[in-house]
Structures are given as structure tokens and as C-alpha cells.
Design a protein around this nucleic acid. Structure first.
Lengths: 239, 239
DNA sequence: GAACGGGATTCACATGAGTTACATCGGCAC
DNA sequence: GTGCCGATGTAACTCATGTGAATCCCGTTC
């Protein structure tokens, strides 16, 4: 049930039996969430964190005029608001992009296990820092990469992250976002997303249809994106 | 010496005598850093974190063509790479923007004090999460705000953060960046930064000269920026 | 005080991306 | 079936921002 999460941790480090048991024991409840539902609202007080078991979610920040920006995409195995454990309220919404399943982890249990198992505490601290690194890479994209390179970069990142939980191959992966949602990830208009998607197809790099991403030329895509997965910190690590 | 740092913590929560002593005792060495020096290089293995005592620094991410993006600005009292404690290498450079003074804090001491004083551990975890929140707000700026609103937002943020360590008033603050550096924060060209700065002055909102930022109309500036300081988490907090 | 150099400023022009509007397609309700 | 609605696709036009110089300004150096 939380296997994607353990997979994600084990990608980076050894997880002891004690630690695994603590993680499994921390889950209070699981629940289904329909696509479109705002699971956590900006500013509301939090007393538990949410682990995504199945489905995709996103962190959204809004502007008054109705413009929205996705700050990070979440895939199965991610905590969508582990930073809420220390922040106690979020500066963004968390929204389900697809029908999803989630598990709730009360903050008091997180607190107990991080005090009893400090190494596990550092692992989770590390995880929130990896989220921050992903956000930094997005800053680089939005600030300096062209529309096409930005989109290519997002596809590389998602594919890599899905591979890390065993849900993608070099050939592609599921990609259930609408072009509107994609535009909110990339800071572009829907119209331009459409143009850019066609340009990527025209160049023989990727195809996207029916919520399915097909990568035709991985090296070409990664070159266009200047993609270097180091910022995902997927290699083995000492805690 | 580390008073700005303690000021920053005490803004948010009570710091006990034990905790203060642990913080003071964690510093191994202090050093001067000249403007322009790359203090930490992307990817290099880290065994200590750096607290900024005096001066301004920035996190830079580069693209091959030479384009650079600032991911976060650091002011006195900030740890510039506290996330390095868990990540062990960074995904960006850290560069001194002005002549600075820094203090080195070995990771083994951080580890020891976070194990012995778990509350302090959560405070520092919180601090890295606030950095991430600042980065998220930058994502919103780069993705959705216009050049002028983006610049207004940066000025609001810096002023607010300097106020939080007692180094700015409502009237303005020091602002030692060149227009080139400003352009690297905002994802704009120098030329456009210059235009935008003039537009802000023309509208009677701010003036920037001689490394000094003067805010002429704070409400107007904050409205233009849609600035809401909640994302800085400056209020009192329970850990 | 002449030469230098980094920053700021200005100008003419180019272009990537936004805007608006409308057409098409496919699913779903009735 | 018919009608509706959200997602996708296209086109024409606009505009914010980028590009590539030149020039200016001012503090520093020899």
C-alpha cells in the first residue's frame, strides 16, 4: 500500500526493519480523493501530513486575477505536504489532478518517530529538501529556459521520477494532465502549450496523447532541456 | 556576532538558554569573503554549513549558454546552505554579492545538537522549509507576474526580511545589487530591468540609487506586487 | 588629468509568447 | 438521435520583453 513510498526511500538508502515498521505504523487512515478536489487549502492549520499512494496531485499558488502556478507535481509515494509538519500551515493549495488515494500521517506520530529514530528524521528532512531542489530547478526553467526547453525539461523530470518508483520506462510514461494544467506548470498559455507540444512532435522528440507520453528521442529531449538528474538526488546517500 | 541569526529565530519562537548555547557552540570558525567569490560550488561534497553574519549572498543556477538564475537571496542571519546538512552536496552555487563575513558550522555538530535538542532540530528543519516557501513564491513571480509586479514583489520581500532582523524601516533599506544581478533574480534582461526600474520611479513607488532602496509608497508597491508576507512565516510558531 | 572600466542608460529593432476568436472533436446527459 | 461542454487545435494580430549596439557616467589608477 505504501510500497511506492518505501521504494522511493530505498532508492536512496537502506531502511531498517525498525524504520520500516515506524513508517508503516505512522499511517492513521487512508482515503480516496476525486480528481479536482482541493485536498489542502492555503493557510489552514494542519495536524497531519498526507502521503500520496495512488494518483497525481499538484501544489498550486494563485494570483488575484485567477492566474495559477503549479509549484510542484506529486506522484505516488510522495508526501504532498511533509513541509506542513514543521510549517503547520501551507502557502499554497494541494489539489488532486486525478482520482487518487492518500494516507494520513498525524504530526504527533511524525514527531514521535523523528525523535525516537533521528536517522529517519533526517531522511524526511532530506525529502523536503529534495522537494525544494525540484522547485529551484523550476525557477531556473521559468526564469531562463525557453518554452520548448522548459516543457522538455518537465517531461524528462516526470519520466525520471516515475522510473524511480518503477512506473516508467525509457519509452515514456502516463501523463494525465490537460494542456491547461500543463500551462499552469510551465507559466505559459494553453495556446502556446499547444504550439510547443506540436513543435516537440514535429522534431520527433515526444508525443503526448490520451494521457500517455511517448518519448521518441530521449537523448535529444534531454539535450534540448539541458536535463541533469543530479538535482533529484536519486543516488545512494548516507544519513 | 551571530545576533542576526538569533534575532531571526526569536522572531518566530522562544529560544531556551540550552538552545542558544548549543547554537553558539556550533560555530567552528568565522571568515571574511570578498564580493564575487563563489563560496560553495554546485556538486561539491559538504561537511559543514555556512551561516551568513554580514553581507549578502545568492544561490545561482546556471545554464550552458551562460544564463544564470538566482534562486534565493541571503541576508545576514541566514544559513545559506542549511539544506546541505541533509543533501550533502548542492544543486547550485552560493556566491557572495557583497563583502561578507560567514561562520562555519560542522555537520557533525548540527547532527549532535539536533539529536540532543529535537526541538531545535525542528526549528532548523522549519528554516529550510521557509527557504523552500520563498522559492515557491519566486516560482509564482516568474511564472505569472509581469516584470514590474515581479520587481515590486522582490523589493517588498527584501524589505520585510530586513525588517525582521532590524535592518530596515518602512521607508526602505540598503539594496547592494547591480542591475545585472537584479536581472538574474527576476529572469529579465538588464535592459528591461532598467526600463522597469524607471517605470517604478515614474509611478512614485520606489527609487533605487547608490545601493539604497527608498520606498515612496509602500501600500501602492504591495498592491502592485500582490504581496502577502504569510509565505515568510514571520509570526510566532510552536515547535 | 588621461586612460580605463564597470555600471547605467538609451535607442532601434526583432521576436517569443499572449490574446482573442472560432472551429473541431469526443464524451455524456437526456 | 440532439445538445452541451470540456479539451484540443488554428489563425491573425498585439505587445511585453529580448537583442545588440552606442553612449554616458563616475570612481579608480597611474
Amino acid at each position: 500500500m505504501i510500497s511506492a513510498h518505501l521504494h522511493k526511500l530505498r532508492q536512496r538508502t537502506h531502511v531498517s526493519a525498525d524504520e520500516e515498521q515506524a513508517i508503516r505504523g505512522s499511517v492513521a487512515e487512508t482515503r480516496s480523493v476525486p480528481a479536482g478536489r482541493v485536498l489542502i487549502r492555503c493557510g489552514e492549520p494542519l495536524s497531519h501530513s498526507v502521503m500520496l499512494l495512488e494518483g497525481w496531485m499538484a501544489r498550486f499558488k494563485d494570483l488575484e486575477g485567477g492566474a495559477r502556478q503549479v509549484t510542484e507535481l506529486h506522484l505516488p509515494g510522495d508526501f504532498v505536504d511533509l513541509h506542513g509538519f514543521t510549517l503547520k500551515r501551507l502557502d499554497h493549495d494541494v489539489v488532486a489532478l486525478t482520482d487518487s488515494r492518500v494516507a494520513f500521517v498525524p504530526h504527533e506520530r511524525l514527531r514521535e518517530i523523528t525523535e525516537r529514530l533521528p536517522r529517519l528524521g533526517r531522511i524526511y528532512w532530506f525529502m523536503t529538501n529534495v522537494d525544494a531542489s525540484i522547485t529551484r530547478e523550476l525557477v531556473l526553467s521559468l526564469g531562463q529556459r525557453s518554452a520548448i526547453s522548459r516543457m522538455a525539461h518537465l517531461f524528462c523530470e516526470i519520466c525520471q521520477r516515475l522510473e524511480a518508483i518503477g512506473r516508467a520506462t525509457g519509452e515514456g510514461c502516463e501523463f494525465p494532465l490537460t494542456q491547461r494544467e500543463l500551462s499552469e506548470c510551465l507559466g505559459l498559455t494553453v495556446v502556446h502549450v499547444n504550439r510547443t507540444l506540436q513543435e516537440l512532435r514535429r522534431r520527433g522528440l515526444v508525443e503526448l496523447e490520451n494521457r500517455q507520453l511517448t518519448i521518441r528521442d530521449r537523448p535529444g529531449l534531454e539535450a534540448l532541456a539541458e536535463f541533469d538528474p543530479a538535482y533529484l538526488y536519486l543516488d545512494q546517500h548516507r544519513f
